[in-house]
Amino acid sequence: MTKAQIVGWAHSKFGKSSAPDTETLMAEVVAPALEHAGVGAADIDGIFVGVMNNGFSKQDFQGALVGMAMPELGKTPAVRMENACATGSAALYSALDFIESGRGKIALVVGAEKMSALPTAEVGDILLGASYRSEEAQVTGGFAGLFGQIAQQYFDKYGECSDALAMIASKNHQNGVHNPYAHMQKAFTFEQCNDVSDRNPYVAPPLRRTDCSLVSDGAAAMIVAAPEVAAGLQRAIAFRARTHTNDILALSQRDITQFDGARRAWAASLEAANLGLYDLDLVETHDCFTVAELLEYEAMGLAEPGKGADVIREGITHKDGRLPVNLSGGLKSKGHPIGATGVSMHIMAAMQLAGEAPEGMQASNAQLAGVFNMGGAAVANYMSVLERVK
């Protein structure tokens, strides 16, 4: 089967943007992505947009906004995908399916979200759309409250490990200093992340402010192409494997101290790629909250259940560790504009493989990378193994 390849990308600065809407944010990245890939608007056979929205904006029909942002694309077939925090990966995988089915040769993927224009309480309520509202809508602290419950149940089952969560936060902020696209390019020490204070209060105990990703605006765009097209372009990053798994939405119906859907996605992708975990040179994983990264260590096979804290304590996922995780700073430092996140994560890994990551962030001679993006509390799980072709 023909497998589509990544041939170009563009990424906005994540943070609190002066851009008023997703149309404006998408306009920042579409033309630069085409230029980076070395293709024109007329070459694009399909447009795949990832925007969660769910109330961030009264303007919907977001797929059509790319044609408003760039009129040359106004008559190109476009569709919008939504899959909670994995919305960007849903758009990307749909574009890959489009190419691999033979329906087109080149596709544009755009992920975007404008979150910061609304009060924090409204943002929290919108994000609860990624939960099972009939049971979880009244959780104190919104989506952070759900992950606070996950962390507390994990602590109750395996022992308190707030220090490990603080180590994850500090690691990702140290990495994010080198990422010019990151929302917060600021280093935090372990002590700053571990201590509860006026500047680092509990948000949803046992999670502190430094355990939670940021409310961000931003956009990211990617060009994917059939291999025969990619062969004539400057760069090509292939999907050696990719897997999408799901788990039950309601937290009450599963063991929330384990991300079983994530585990199945990792296992399937590594098997399909014929690789072991340590064959990868780096991983970009979905650290919407620090406890998510810890549970993902266990899901990807770095540790047995209940032993994820040992991974960060032993330095395995640090920049100079055996398997660096979130060299970009992750969602924790880079930010988490929902629809853009999955596209951004794949770009961060592709940059590494192409040798185009920013100075200080670039891994040495990276050839293989894992990308894990999830929607909700590991409900929709997307796992990609990327490798450099040229």
Rank of each mutant, 00 (worst) to 15 (best):
F188P: 01
F155G: 03
L127C: 10
H244I: 06
L92Q: 02
E284H: 05
V110S: 00
S12F: 00
L249F: 05
G330E: 01
A151L: 05
Q367W: 05
M222Y: 00
A37S: 07
G74R: 14
A230R: 01
G142E: 01
V215T: 15
G145W: 03
F14S: 12
G321K: 05
N175L: 01
M167L: 15
K114H: 00
S89C: 14
F14M: 13
Q234E: 15
F289T: 11
D255F: 08
M222R: 05
Q192D: 07
I106S: 03
A369L: 07
M167D: 12
K334I: 11
V291N: 12
L249G: 06
T120E: 14
H286G: 04
K332I: 14
E100K: 01
A238V: 09
I99M: 08
G40S: 14
L73F: 09
V283L: 12
A90E: 00
G88Y: 02
A238N: 10
A90G: 01
L146R: 09
P32D: 02
Q367T: 13
A78W: 01
Q258W: 02
P20F: 02
D156Q: 10
I44W: 03
D279V: 10
P206R: 11
Q152M: 13
G375A: 10
G232L: 01
N381R: 09
K334G: 03
S197K: 07
A238S: 14
K186L: 13
D320Q: 15
Y181D: 05
H346N: 15
Y132R: 10
G145S: 04
A10W: 02
A107R: 08
D320V: 11
L25G: 07
I223Y: 00
A380F: 09
G74W: 10
V215N: 10
I347F: 07
P77W: 08
R313W: 06
E356P: 10
Y93K: 15
C212R: 03
G38H: 09
L73Y: 08
M68F: 15
H173E: 07
L331R: 01
T2W: 08
V385K: 01
A31V: 13
L165Q: 01
I106G: 06
M345W: 01
G176R: 08
S328L: 04
Q153W: 11
V39A: 00
Q192Y: 10
A42D: 13
G276I: 04
A144V: 09
S252W: 11
T317H: 09
I126Q: 04
R209K: 15
Y202M: 13
D217T: 07
N200K: 09
L25I: 06
G232M: 03
A37C: 06
C161E: 03
A151F: 03
Y154W: 14
L277V: 04
R199S: 14
L92F: 11
G360Q: 08
G218P: 01
M348S: 13
N246Q: 14
R235S: 11
P227L: 09
P205H: 06
P324A: 03
A107V: 08
I223L: 10
I106R: 07
Y202I: 12
A357Y: 05
A117E: 11
A272C: 07
G330Y: 00
